[in-house]
Amino acid sequence: MISGTLDGNLRHALYVLGENPVTAAAFALFLLFALLATFGPALVPYDPLASNTAQALNAPSISHWFGTDQLGRDIFSRVVVATRLDLGIAIAAVALAFSVGTLLGLIGGYWGGWADRIIGRIVDTIMAFPLFVLAMGIVAGLGNSVANIIYATAIINLPIYARLSRAEANIRCNAGFIEAARLCGNGEVRIALGQLFPNILPLMAVQVSLTLGYAILNAAGLSFIGLGVRPPTAEWGIMVAEGASNIVSGEWWVALFPGLVLMTAVFCFNLIGDGLRDIVDPVRRT
């Protein structure tokens, strides 16, 4: 029975991918980013931190595909190596926001009452801030480190998960399959985690990939203004910031390539999110 529905889901997913080549391309791009994040440091032609002032600010060429920056570091190597850090920050933050937010939403939506009211108030308070500004404030308060960038990004993404899972859990809290599980003598916690959670998981998965793109943008934005990751570490946001002063003197490649790759990564996650939504929630297909 279960393998039957899995098979059906897979067929549906393959059908959607076949119908929508853009989503398929986005998945391929995602695989490429995953490979770069895993094997990137072993693949790059130059040490991303090795400066060579004799080769400073060279335009893109055969030996330096993306050119070199003001310290003569190879930009291609730095962009590739940065993949792991950028994706790592975003994935860690989203994983944290997903687990805590979904749990809070489940508690609020399934049990209701005071827990729901308190959780709702916390979520509302986070939403009362412009999110990037709140992230700046959190990093300023907690201290300027990569771990705190992750916490800040997780906190500003928390409301999305908490609200979505609360709404979905609330719709289902008296559904037939929940009643059945109750009649079978399952405890409430067991029902919430074992029956309710798997049921809302597909919808949450869509949200994960949509927020991943936003999390990457957010983390890169924070490091662009000098928070979190510090030079000389290779990170897309910092690299764009380092290239910002070169833009007005015409050395476009220093900022362009890290910016383009950052944009592509965000674009890729947004497209995957839209594609996943088509698979999971055909009603909302646009």
């Binding site: 662009f224 290239g243 950052l262 947004n270």
Partner: peptide, 19 residues
């Protein structure tokens, strides 16, 4: 539009229209 990092768009516009 939603995938563009604002700081990057800004630099791009500066390069195109100023430089």
């Amino acid at each position: 539009g939603v995938s563009l990092p604002t700081f990057f768009t800004g630099l791009l516009l500066v390069y195109l229209f100023y430089y």
